[in-house]
Structure formats: C-alpha cells, structure tokens
Design a protein around this nucleic acid. Structure first.
Length: 906
DNA sequence: ATGCGGAACATTACTTTGCCATAT
DNA sequence: TATATGGCTTTGTAATGTTCCGCA
C-alpha cells in the first residue's frame, strides 16, 4: 500500500517534466491532485463534513479533466485548479473560489492562494497515506474471483500431489527397503494386534534417528525421490514423511500420509502482505512446487535451474527454511564443480530477494516498507552466511563424495546438528517465537506427517498423529501452535490413503472460527473431496485390518447401516470436535459462528428463542448456542413459504419500516403525517406458524385476494382445489368459456421506479383444467392457422405490390423511354423456361385473351385498368395464349385478365 | 505483536399492486 | 365516448459484509 504512495510522490517530483512531455500523465496528476485536495479538505473539515459528501464533488470533475485539457478549462472546479496549480498554470480566477464556497473557505484559500511554482510539493507531501492506500488497495470483485479461482486450482494441484505421494508410499520396493533397514526387534510390530500409540514409540524414534530432513532431490518423480531419500536417509520434509508412511504400511499398519495444503490465499490482498503469513505469497509459494519440479525434471541441471525456477522454489511456502535448503543445495553444487550454475543460483536468489518486494507492484519501493525489506535482506544475508559456512563444512567432509550429480548424498554423513543450524537460521525472524512455542525444537513448519490407526486407543480406535521428523507422537494438539509459530496457516489438513483423501483439519485445528473464512466454500470443497473420501474410506476400511474378529467392524457397512466403520467413527470424532469447539475470545467471531452466538451480533431478522442456556461470556456478553437463534419474518414473507401466522400470535419483534419516498412532494405537514402513519414491520418466528390454510375453491369459483388475484409465490400458495395454468393467453380462453379465474401474480419487478406485479397465467379450479387445456390447444391451433393464413395473405399482397410496381415502372419506361425495355427482369412463372431475361409489360390490347373481364374493357386508362380488377387474382398463363416472335425471339405469355409477359429466349 | 472496535466503503436484501397522453 | 396503448425519471434505503486503521 505505501508503494502507491511512493509512486505518487515520485510522479509529483517529476510532474513538471511530464507536463511538457505528454498529456497522458495529466490524468494521473489530476487524480493525485484531486486526492490531495480531497484529503486536505477532509482533514480541514474533520468531524464536520463527512467524506461521503466530499468525494462526489471531485469525481466528475476529475473525470472531465482526464478527457479534456485541464489546463485550458476555464470552468473547472477546485480540483482542476489544484491540479493545474502545481503545473505552473496558475491564474487563479475568482470564480473558482466562489464556486466552492460551500466548503471551508479559509482552509481552501490557505491551500491554493500561493502562486509560486511549488505548491505541489506541499500538497502531495501532506497526502495522507491512508486515503491513497484505501483507494488503491481495495480489491475489486474481479480480483476476488481471480483469487478464488487460483485458490481452488491450487488446492486441486495440492490434492493431486498428495495422492501422488500417497501412491509412492505404497510402492512395494520402497516398503521392502524400509523393512530391510529396520532392526529385527522393531519388525515385531507387525504382529502386534492391540496397537497403541505408545507401542509405536520405538519405531518412530528409530525412524527419527535414521532419517533426516535435508536438501531436496525434487528433480525426480516422487517414487524415485523416495528411493533416493531412502538410500541417503535424507530428503525433503515431504519425502521423509512419506518414507515414514511407507514404513508403517510395510509393517502392515494402517497409515495415511497427511499434508497441510498450503494453498494460495483465498483473499486477493493477502499476497500483498508479506508478513501476514509466511506462506501466502502467491501460488508458486506452495510447499510442493510441482510445476517447477517437473520442469526441472526434463532438463539438464544447467538449463533447468533458471532463475525463474529458483525464484519459485525460493518463494515456496516452506519459506525460509526451504529457501535455505535450496541454497545449501546450491552450495553443494558449487562444490561439486559447476560454478556457472551456482552463479546462476546465487544471482537468482538475490534476484528473488530483491524482486520479491517489487514484483507485485513494480512501480514501487517505498519508505514505509523499507525496514521490512531490510529485515528480509538481513535474513537472506544470514542465510547466505550459513550457506557459506555449511558449504565449507560440507566441503571438508566432502572430499569423499564422488559424483556432483548426486548432490543429495553429499550430506549423508553430515550431522543433523548442521541441518538444524541452517534451519534455525532460516527462521531467524521468528526464531524466538518458535523457541517459545515449541521449546528447543527448531524446525520449520510441519507440513507433512503421518497418521496411524491405533485400534487400542480411545476404546473404539483412533487415528494417531505421528510426526516422525519432529519425533512427536499423538501430538495433534501441538500442530496448531507449531504451525502458528511458523506463520503458516492451517486451513486444510488432508489425509491421503488408498489413492483417496479426507479432510481432517478438525483434528488439528482447535480454533476453527479463525480459519473458516480462509477456506473455500464448503460445498465446493466437499464435492471435490467426495470421490476421494470414498476411495480413502473404502481402502482404509478394507486394507490392513488388524484383527478379523475386532469388535469394531472395519468392513464397509454395506449390509448393516449401523455397523460403525473406521471411517464413520472418524467422522463422528471430527464432528464431535466441531461441536465442542471452545468459545472464541473475541466478539467478532460470534458474528457468523456456526455454534455460538451473542445477542449483540444478531441481525435484524434474528431473535434468541429460547434465550438460554448461557454457555459462557465474552467481554461480558452472554454466549448462547447458535441453535437458539431463530429467523423471524413478516407475515407476507412467511406466506411465500406457504406458512401463515397462527391466530392470537403476537409479533415477537417489530422493526421500523422504511418510509416510502413516494409522496414526499407535499409539504412538511404531509411529511409529518407520513412519519406518523409509518408502521412497524411485525415479525413472527417459526414457532408461531402453521401451514397455510387458504379457503377451498367451491362451485368452480377461485378464492381471490383483495385485489382479485392469487399470489402464486409457490405451489403452496395455491388455494386448494385450484391449479395454475401458465399459458400466455389462458385468460381469454377462460373468459370465452366463462370459467372463473384469477390472474396469477408470481412476483414483482421494478420498472420506472416502482414495483410492478408480474403475472404469469391464471389460476382456475382444478376441475376446469382439462377443459381449459383442451380449449387452449384448440384455440392455439386456430390461432396458428389464422397466423399462417395472415402470413400467406401478406406474402401474396406483397408479391402483388411488387409486381404492380414493376409493371408500372415498365409502363412508364415504355411510354417515355422505349430503349430501356429490357431493364427489368423477372421470373414470374419460371416453370417452362430457363430464361434469364424477361421483359414484362402490360399489354392492354386484350386482343387474344379477353373474355368479359372488366379490366379489358376499361379502355385506355392504364392506371385504373390495373388497380382494381387484378386484385386477388393469380395470373394464369395458358399455353394457347402464348405467341412467339421468331425475329425478336420474344415469347409473349398472356393471362386471361389481359396481363402479359414477354420472355426473351436465350 | 495482537486483537478490538470504529470508520469507510462495497454489496446485498428488502421494498412491493401507475398514470397520463394519445390513438383507436 | 370508452378503451387500448405506450412511455415515463428511474428505486431508495437500510442492513450486512469487508477492509483498514488507530488504539490499548
């Protein structure tokens, strides 16, 4: 946000140059000035005039000056002046000051009177950041949509990634290798029938001691990466967690791979706040940068490690820790004799550092921000220092390592101490936090872990959280604080198993109300997860059963609906957590909390009933269960749902109804009357209602309301014994058949500033339905036939008009311009000839054809001869009346009416 | 550093049943 | 003279949601 400010400041400083250079900048300049003036005035009028009032004054003017030439506009208001002033085009006219009398004169004059060349600096320097910021950073609906889309797509990608990892954990080779590494006494675990989390401790401990998180070998597909990690006993957090899952599965335990899906923020502006959460910096900042990784996979290291890729990796949501890891890789690579790459990397890293703050908003780099970026720079500096140190260390240790390509292996012998040191350096900004939060465990945010199903926990069995990397068993309650300490958000925790997935966020998130708004709409998420859930529950019910005779059936509940499955038991557990969430400590959380409510945050149409029990207090406000919140509505609103208020029920709440501004034209007296007669809306609750009890239709008469119609909000609103016929002209049929009907009003629409009822069809008694439908069909048929007839008649008449005009034209041609006889062409009959050029003329001799047709006798008046008689006549050209002129090759066809056509044979 | 609450906007929900001049 | 038709200015208001900012 302060970026914009600085941008504006920059612009202001160069404004004079820009002025001369181009007009384009003037809009911006004007804008700046407007804002500056607005802010000045706002400050001046603080408390008096509200901002709302001020802004519209500037807006239109500002628009105008953008289009027009602001300098030359004589009638601009104060905003225009302000923008001009700094440009040196001073000439303040009195009119300007006059025009803004309504504003605070003295303040205004103070602001603009100076005629020197530099008032601008003053103006822009006093521009309060807040106003500019507010304007520029309020996300538009488009931004929101985009952010949501990105969030969704990112989630899908992360889900897919999780499934990939899950599949890799099933790899028999990996599992077998894990088993082969396992000491004999731990292998016994697969024979344990009553598994408790405690029993897992030695196993997890062994794993923790033997596998460490370190640099990534992400260039390979998951399975290979796993194999490699297995070989080196080191890998990314994801790989190590996956290996642990593979180990559990190898031991025939039921295990899931669990991952925090740290997707790009759902809210558009989150990415602008580097410190809001360490992880939200855009989509590439995922903990599982699949794209970048895959990209790398297909290229030689030299080509693939472009700065772009590295940027992505370095910005990954593991954030600093991951960054450092990558960097340590870098150093190793440098060690292994590939200086160009390391150079690339270094430069790219620095690039990423510097660009990180600027890329989002290229125009900016600001004073306010500076200390933050400085801090960041410090972090990076420390990181690089650590890198260098570790590289040296590795270099010493490393004389024994062989291939540069296998950089991952280089640190095999490296003590985990070193790793931890690097990691702690990464997170140095929050290292205190971490150390307070999780004691001496200096780790990055846990993003991956395992869940093992322990059938002896909790009577019914339980999925136990096992973070082998951090040696935490059954620490589901610790995850939230650890994640919080690392500034990662815990919005989606998904357990992967059986190629499916299940959202288990509830198990790890104690403060759901804090993350609820950061999650995508549950309907979408549920629908996405539904098929994956089925896969997961199907697999984890059937696979790896501990004992066939276990009291809790692990089979899917196909036969008996009440046999609890492992999955359904887990559902119950998660549901229970959802229902036993602790009370939020801040009031705002109660606004839309699904479980709790405080009266203060109820909406206009909500009441508490019953008003109790009180579950607790928040800042002195009693907290009630959300189930006590009832929605209340007016009678009319309930009517729409087919409900009516019972007799003798009093409104449970009354709210002021807004005054209708319809008859405000009159004087104050009327106004007074108006407000006097203003009624309150009476609201009723669900418990005061009964099903709508409309009068029955009797004797074919439809019961109507006071307006002689039926309000058909829904089917429920139809009086019993009536039907709604949605035919366009049904009423006319009913009228004709003398059937009683009522117009069906289905809603309102706003037109011309008023609400108008919208009608759709009619309501009639049910017994007339068939008759009406039949009659309507008949009528419709008739109507169509009539329409067709009309269309045909119209077509005929138009043809007639066309031909008449042709004839008239031809006749005129004949009379006044004989040379143009073949100008017009027509094909009237078109069945005998393929002629292309036909000369038409009116032949009024009637020599051959005439048979007491009135036309023929009408003599020489050509106009009249054609006008009347030929109407409604279709010319018939009989063969016997044809004549053919050999010389001119003209075929003359004649109708009995005397009309003739000459056709030229080609 | 964090959360709270107010301010400033943005968005949504609620409202809810013509009139007059002109042509036919 | 009675009836049909078309055009007119176009919601306005309040509640609710979201974001920012100052303050404790």
């Amino acid at each position: 946000m302060p970026r914009k400010v600085s941008q504006r400041k920059k612009k202001s400083s160069t404004s004079e140059n820009e002025m001369g250079a181009s007009n384009n900048s003037e809009g911006t300049l004007t804008e700046i000035s407007c804002e500056a003036v607005g802010n000045l005035l706002r400050r001046a009028n603080k408390g008096g005039t509200s901002k709302k009032k001020m802004m519209p004054e500037f807006q239109p003017e500002h628009n105008g000056t953008q289009v027009l030439e602001p300098i030359l506009q004589p009638n601009t208001l104060e905003a225009g002046h302000c923008s001009r002033n700094p440009m040196g085009n001073v000439s303040l006219d009195k009119g300007c000051l006059d025009s803004k009398e309504e504003l605070d004169d003295s303040d205004w004059e103070d602001g603009i009177v100076p005629k020197d060349d530099h008032p601008m600096t003053i103006e822009l320097n006093v521009t309060p950041d807040s106003a500019v910021r507010k304007q520029s950073h309020r996300a538009s609906a488009k931004d929101k949509d985009l952010a949501e889309l990105v969030h969704k797509v990112h989630l899908l990608c992360l889900l897919a990634r999780g499934r990939l990892v899950d599949s890799a954990c099933d790899d028999p080779l990996i599992q077998a290798s894990m088993l082969s590494l396992l000491p004999a006494h731990l292998i016994q675990l697969q024979n344990v029938t009553k598994l408790t989390s405690k029993a897992l401790h030695p196993l997890v401990s062994w794993f923790h001691d033997n596998f460490h998180v370190r640099s990534t070998n992400a260039e390979k597909p998951v399975c290979f990466a796993l194999a490699s990690a297995l070989e080196s006993r080191e890998g990314s957090p994801e790989e190590i967690a996956a290996l642990s899952v593979a180990l559990y599965r190898a031991l025939n335990l039921t295990a899931r791979f669990v991952s925090i899906l740290d997707a790009a923020s759902l809210k558009p502006d989150q990415s602008c706040r580097p410190d809001a959460s360490g992880s939200s910096k855009g989509i590439f900042n995922t903990s599982t940068p699949m794209v970048a990784k895959l990209k790398l996979d297909f290229k030689s290291p030299k080509q693939s490690l472009s700065s772009y890729d590295i940027d992505k990796v370095c910005e990954s949501s593991l954030g600093r820790s991951r960054k450092s890891k990558k960097c340590s890789t870098t150093s190793h690579m440098a060690q292994s004799g590939d200086p160009p790459i390391s150079e690339d990397l270094k430069s790219s890293i620095t690039k990423s550092q510097t660009s990180e703050t600027q890329d989002n908003d290229p125009e900016s780099c600001l004073a306010d921000k500076s200390h933050k970026s400085k801090r960041k720079g410090d972090v990076e500096y420390e990181m690089q220092l650590q890198m260098a140190l570790s590289a040296t260390t590795v270099g010493c240790l490393e004389s024994k390592t062989e291939s540069g390509a296998n950089a991952d292996k280089e640190n095999f012998s490296c003590p985990s101490k070193r790793v931890k040191r690097v990691v702690s350096a990464d997170t140095s900004t929050s290292s205190q936090l971490i150390s307070t939060a999780v004691g001496s465990m200096k780790v990055g945010s846990p993003l991956y872990w395992a869940e093992v199903y322990c059938n002896e926990e909790n009577l019914t069995g339980k999925w136990v959280h096992i973070d082998a990397v951090n040696l935490i068993i059954d620490g589901e309650d610790k995850v939230e604080s650890m994640v919080a300490a690392c500034k990662t958000s815990l919005r989606y925790v998904v357990a992967f198993g059986g190629h499916g997935a299940k959202d288990v966020t509830r198990r790890y998130c104690m403060k759901w109300y804090k993350i609820a708004s950061q999650r995508v709409s549950s309907t979408w998420w549920d629908s996405v997860l539904a098929p994956l859930r089925d896969l997961e529950s199907g697999a984890n019910s059937g696979v790896a059963q501990f004992r066939p005779n276990q009291s809790i059936s692990t089979e899917s509940n196909t036969g008996h609906s009440f046999v609890p499955t492992r999955s359904s038991l887990e559902d119950i557990e998660l549901e229970t957590r959802a229902l036993t969430e602790p009370l939020p400590t801040n009031q705002q959380a109660y606004k839309s909390h699904p479980l709790y409510a405080i009266e203060k945050w109820l909406t206009k149409y909500q009441v508490l009933r019953p008003k109790g029990p009180i579950l607790g207090f928040c800042s002195g406000h009693p907290v009630y269960p959300r189930t006590c919140v009832q929605t209340v509505k007016t009678k009319e609103r309930w009517l729409r749902e087919g409900l009516q208020v019972k007799a003798d029920e009093h409104p449970v709440k009354e709210i002021k109804r807004s005054i209708k501004p319809q008859k405000v034209q009159d004087s104050g007296a009327d106004d007074y009357e108006c407000s006097d007669s203003m009624e309150n809306s009476k609201l009723y609750g669900m418990w005061q209602l009964e099903p709508l009890n409309l009068p029955h239709a009797v004797n074919g008469i439809v019961p109507k309301n006071e307006r002689g119609q039926v309000d058909v909000w829904s089917e429920k609103c139809l009086p019993p014994g009536t039907v709604h016929l949605r035919f366009p002209r049904a009423f006319s049929v009913a009228k004709r058949l003398e059937i009683d009907y009522a117009p069906a009003m289905v809603g309102f629409e706003f037109k011309n500033g008023r609400s108008h009822p919208v009608y759709d069809g009619i309501v009639v008694c049910a017994e007339f339905k068939d008759v009406l439908v039949e009659a309507y069909a008949e009528e419709d048929e008739k109507r169509r036939a009539e329409e067709k007839r009309r269309d045909e008649a119209q077509a005929l008449s138009r043809w007639y008009q066309l031909l008449s005009s042709i004839v008239t034209r031809q006749r005129l041609n004949n009379c006044y311009n004989n040379n143009l006889s073949s100008e017009m062409s027509t094909d009237i009959q078109g069945k005998n000839e393929n002629e292309s050029n036909a000369a038409v003329c009116a032949d009024n001799d009637n020599n051959q054809s005439p048979k007491h047709h009135p036309v023929n006798k009408s003599g020489t008046d050509l106009d009249t001869s054609f006008d009347t008689p030929v109407k409604d006549h279709v010319h018939v050209f009989l063969k016997e009346y044809e004549t053919f002129d050999e010389v001119t090759s003209l075929l003359t066809k004649r109708c009995q009416c005397g009309f003739s056509v000459q056709v030229e044979e080609l």
